[in-house]
Design a binder for these strands. Structure first.
Lengths: 192, 192
DNA sequence: CAGGCCCGGTAGACAATGTCTACGGCCGCC
DNA sequence: GGCGGCCGTAGACATTGTCTACCGGGCCTG
């Protein structure tokens, strides 16, 4: 595979592999070019700046995350509340499994240099979250958007704090699932 | 003031000012040295590596945050639940007001290069959080540590997602307070 | 009081990186 | 058949982090 992909796609792919294998600090423009077998100036033809290439890689991560969420939902449909729990688990697993990717995806300087509209890529996922929250919680207050936002923030916070071990240090826990369950029931009420 | 501070403290201070005024990308070792009026090799006497200087600056941020929390608690004592809300507000305000500092404080590579025990600096704050949660929630399940962890994660997530505008984009909100209130009542029950 | 030592800072070098510019080859098209 | 535009090369430049050699002056020691 990957036989006749253009250089642009190859750069994104190689950069992604580098990110996943060697960590975010290894993803330099020149190293990507080296591994792609081109000169250090070549990427500039497709990505005028280093940040734009990183944004493209991050974008790739968002679509991968969305795919995982969708496939998880497809194979085990259930109550909205159960589906939200599934999404949450996929989210946390993604953050823990593909740390570098996740970190890159939420780098503020990438999100703010919005040429590639990175944020827009995460919007459909949030919309799905909001819809499921609206179904799982019939009460009108607080509005589903607010609950969904708070829940997303909670997921994100758990993922981050867990990933770098702050929570294990503070709580002595060896597993983020109790935290996740606490967050889910806090925002959505008890399961089933 | 700052008349007879040693170079070590001056580097931390100048670096912090640089961080607050010009953003995280401006905080280079050489620029700090320049602004401190010393040669580019001077910092090495006190900080063997760039990351260690950054860690010291981040540490400074944690002590500042702790000071703000304590002063807020001192001037308006109330029920544990109200105090938690105060802490949360201070936390979010800190993250929004001193963005660069906050970002630096939670850079995983700083937290992981634990020579300076950066994480330990945030521990007392978390302990305070846990104690207040235990007082505000008499129920034994889930344990206070878990609730405190989930709440902290939620605060952190709100601060992050809010800071780079993802939440305003997704929810159209102009104020993070509804999210914060939703999170607080979700984890701690309704106010007063 | 003299001499050596070490602390704290200087200065230069080095590799690596991101960005910019000039160049070249190769393709297809008129 | 020539020619123009796409795509990649190659070299330069400033900047950064780190390393090493150096040095000046104050302090302790003899």
């Amino acid at each position: 595979m990957h036989v006749d992909e253009g250089l642009r796609d190859r750069l994104i792919r190689v950069g992604g592999e580098l990110l996943d294998h060697q960590g975010p600090s290894a993803v330099s423009l020149r190293e990507i070019a080296r591994r792609a077998g081109v000169s250090h100036g070549a990427p500039r033809r497709y990505f005028p700046t280093h940040l734009e290439l990183l944004s493209a890689i991050a974008r790739d991560g968002f679509t991968d995350l969305a795919a995982r969420v969708n496939s998880a939902l497809a194979e085990a449909p259930g109550h909205p509340r159960a589906r939200l729990a599934d999404i949450a688990r996929v989210y946390l697993d993604f953050a823990a499994t593909r740390r570098g990717r996740y970190e890159l995806m939420f780098r503020h300087d990438l999100l703010e240099s919005g040429h590639l509209r990175l944020r827009d890529t995460s919007l459909p996922l949030f919309r799905l979250l909001t819809d499921l929250v609206a179904q799982a919680r019939p009460e009108p207050e607080p509005p589903a958007q607010v609950v969904a936002g708070a829940l997303w923030a909670n997921l994100h916070g758990i993922a981050q704090l867990w990933n770098w071990g702050s929570l294990t240090l503070a709580t002595g826990a060896t597993d983020p699932n109790p935290l996740l369950d606490a967050a889910l029931t806090a925002h959505l009420g008890p399961a089933a």
